[in-house]
Design a protein around this nucleic acid. Structure first.
Lengths: 178, 178
DNA sequence: GTTTACATGTAATCCGTTACATGATTGA
DNA sequence: TCAATCATGTAACGGATTACATGTAAAC
């Protein structure tokens, strides 16, 4: 299996899809917004931008007015890579491993084809419901074998999975109606 | 700042706190339970066990009946490292970066001192409530600057944060009463 | 004139992933 | 006997973190 692209790459591509930006701009976004889970350190951003440029997904031009800045924009290939990533089917395992990545895909659907958002939410709803079932099955299995605090943590996990499933289902319906 | 220990290390230590186990046993737990977010690959587990042993946090003895197995158990130092990790104050940034790690700490509080669980939940409740506030402030700030799907993703994030805060608050109260 | 913010990078180190390698035991 | 499972490791590679390094521009 080919190595999957790191989530940071998609976060960068998704931000650049909104318009050109420099490495410094992108770092500040990671520092100051809800995207804080991604590293804002120069040691991760600049190498990431360099490899995306090497792969032809972004293109940087150096500005010389004021500070020396390299402003990057998405190439056609970059846009294509984003679309491909977003359009992947949503598997239950995606939620098990890291649901935040699925949410990142949702966040960056902005310029998707019409009807795409509804499809995404529909898939998401199915996967999220299935995930809840899996967790509940796991609880029934291990209930008596684990400590009190582990049971609490498990309960919290189920509560969150239910909240996710419920929100996605409701939103999917609303989007369908609109 | 000293490099923080990888979450996998704590997952392994926490599992070993319940009783001795081999690398293979631990891998199967990661494969089959809700701990699936941690890698079950031999290339991560065995090196991790090796480094924990090097650091004196676990101790392995080789069994020779049947298959050749190395069964590990927690040392005193390992137990101490776990306690220290669990007792850290809960910061809002911990939730921003990766709330699952806070939940892992909750899961492994089993053998904490009496009263500790209440303290943990109380801190957690404060941090979770503060986190919701931060997200809501972020929404008010960016509401008009982001795409429709990004706004939806943000809404989902807030919904989940609220569900977390609510569950933790309720559970903290219940635990206080008990 | 000196601190603060802007701005981009590199080097050392550590960890995770993937793939490879090895061998014993059990069960069909 | 042949496949599946048990069981432990190593090697190559890539990416993240931390720290270091460098320099410009604005603000006070």
């Amino acid at each position: 299996m080919p190595r999957t692209r790191p989530a940071l790459d998609y976060a960068l591509l998704g931000l650049l899809a909104r318009g050109p930006a420099s490495g410094y701009d992108l770092r500040k976004i990671f520092q100051t917004t809800a995207l804080g889970r991604y590293s804002d350190s120069p040691g991760s951003i600049y190498p990431a931008l360099a490899r995306l440029e090497r792969q032809g997904l972004i293109d940087g031009r150096t500005e010389q007015s004021g500070h020396r800045r390299r402003v990057f924009h998405l190439t056609m290939r970059g846009r294509h890579a984003m679309t491909e990533w977003i359009e992947q089917p949503i598997a239950v395992d995606d939620l098990l491993r890291d649901a935040a990545i699925v949410d990142l895909r949702l966040a960056f659907m902005s310029d998707a084809a019409p009807g795409q958002l509804e499809g995404f939410l529909g898939q998401y709803a199915r996967a999220a419901a299935e995930y809840v079932k899996r967790l509940e099955a796991g609880r029934d299995e291990f209930e008596n074998a684990i400590s009190r605090s582990a049971a609490l943590a498990f309960e919290l996990g189920i509560t969150l999975a239910r909240a996710r499933a419920s929100w996605v289902r409701t939103t999917a319906s609303a989007e369908q109606a609109a």
